[in-house]
Amino acid sequence: MTLNILFSARPNFWKKYEAPLPRALAEAGIDARVFQPGEVAAEDVDYIVFAPNGPVEDFAPFVKAKAALSLWAGVESVVGNETLQMPLARMVDTSLTEGMVEWVTGQVLRHHLGLDRHIVNPEHDWKFVIPPLARDRVVTVLGLGALGMACAEALVALNFRVRGWSRSAKEVAGVASFSGEDGLLAAVEGAEIVVLLLPDTPATENVMDARAFAAMAEGGFVINPGRGPLIDDAALLAALDSGQLAHATLDVFRQEPLPEGHTFWAHPKVTVTAHTASETRPWSASQAVAANILRAEAGEELVGLVDRGAGY
């Protein structure tokens, strides 16, 4: 049987996936045709591959569709869509994970080694500062999902003293794990670097607030490649201005692109990157989609299946 797969995303996405997605399906042994919105009747669609900002917002007409497979790791903008009643899977992609691990470890090492003092040194000061060893530096990773766990494991391999926090208890080799509301402050207490990799849900909004910043080691660093609402922006600026925090490296924001004139752009203790910490690569994302369709056709649980109650 030939499967009808609807691809719903902005035109620039289709250009990227037009070749690799059919190729990945064929290589996986899936007999399928890929359509864009308007090219196939809704009642004939078997699977929907979509970006949450794409043209399909009403999923109700797709009465035969077996699953909606997101091209994004974050599903906060679609998980509450009442028309989306079919199984929903977020993107779990090897290149997404690898890219995040590389970005996070790079930023952690940047702050751990104090590289900024040498990169920005207009006075040409001979700054003889010996950084501590990784084994003497506490790094806390908030969020131990696929991305957070991979980053925590990479930091353990670099010999950092790694803590992790998640909604429910997780066991990660070499990581001191905390969970639940009571475990949050314990996880950040005395931490010199905090990495945020939590999903955006009502329960995680402003998880890093004034109390959490105050619990960190004085002169600590915050790295956020997760979601903008995880941080109370006003509390972050106050912590930076008081010296409680030395620097914040932010890749995600409440409004993107970050508006011109926003305080973060000009703040001397803030580094802004343009939501580039990790990105799905069309070739590997297409392979992940094909693998999930194979699982669904075999009656197996989808990789990245979203828990509607938890919001991710």
Rank of each mutant, 00 (worst) to 15 (best):
M1F: 06
M1D: 07
T2V: 08
F7Y: 11
F7Q: 07
S8T: 07
P11K: 11
N12M: 09
W14V: 07
K15W: 06
L21G: 05
L21S: 02
P22D: 10
L25I: 10
A26Y: 05
A28D: 09
A28G: 00
D31V: 11
D31Y: 08
A32S: 05
F35Y: 15
E39G: 10
V40N: 05
E43F: 00
D44L: 13
D46V: 09
A51K: 11
A51Y: 14
P55A: 01
P61K: 06
L71C: 13
W72P: 01
A73L: 09
A73S: 03
G74W: 01
G74M: 03
G74E: 00
E76S: 04
V78G: 03
V79P: 00
N81D: 14
Q85V: 14
R90T: 12
T94D: 14
T97C: 06
T97M: 04
E98M: 08
M100Y: 08
E102V: 01
V104R: 00
T105P: 05
R110Q: 11
H111P: 08
H112T: 01
H112C: 01
L113H: 01
I119C: 03
V120R: 15
P122Y: 01
I130L: 11
P131H: 08
P131D: 03
P131Q: 13
P132T: 10
T140K: 10
L147S: 11
L147C: 14
G148R: 12
C151R: 07
A154R: 02
L155W: 03
V156L: 11
R161K: 15
V162R: 02
R163I: 09
G164N: 09
S168P: 06
S168N: 11
A169G: 00
A169D: 05
E171S: 09
G174I: 14
V175Q: 01
G180M: 03
E181W: 00
V188Y: 07
A191K: 10
A191C: 08
A191M: 15
E192T: 03
V195T: 09
V195H: 02
L196G: 06
T201M: 09
A203C: 00
T204D: 04
E205N: 01
E205A: 12
R211A: 12
F213V: 06
M216W: 10
I223M: 05
I223T: 02
N224Y: 05
G226F: 01
G226Q: 06
G226E: 03
P229Y: 03
D232V: 02
A234Q: 15
L240R: 06
H247R: 05
H247G: 07
A248R: 10
A248N: 08
L250C: 07
D251E: 02
D251R: 00
V252N: 00
V252W: 01
R254D: 06
L258A: 13
W265D: 06
T271C: 10
A274G: 13
A274L: 12
H275L: 03
A277S: 15
E279I: 12
W283M: 06
Q287W: 10
Q287G: 07
A288Y: 12
N292K: 04
N292M: 11
A296Y: 08
A298G: 15
A298Y: 12
G299H: 15
G299A: 10
E300S: 09
L302D: 14
G304D: 13
V306H: 12
R308S: 11
R308M: 14
G311Q: 05
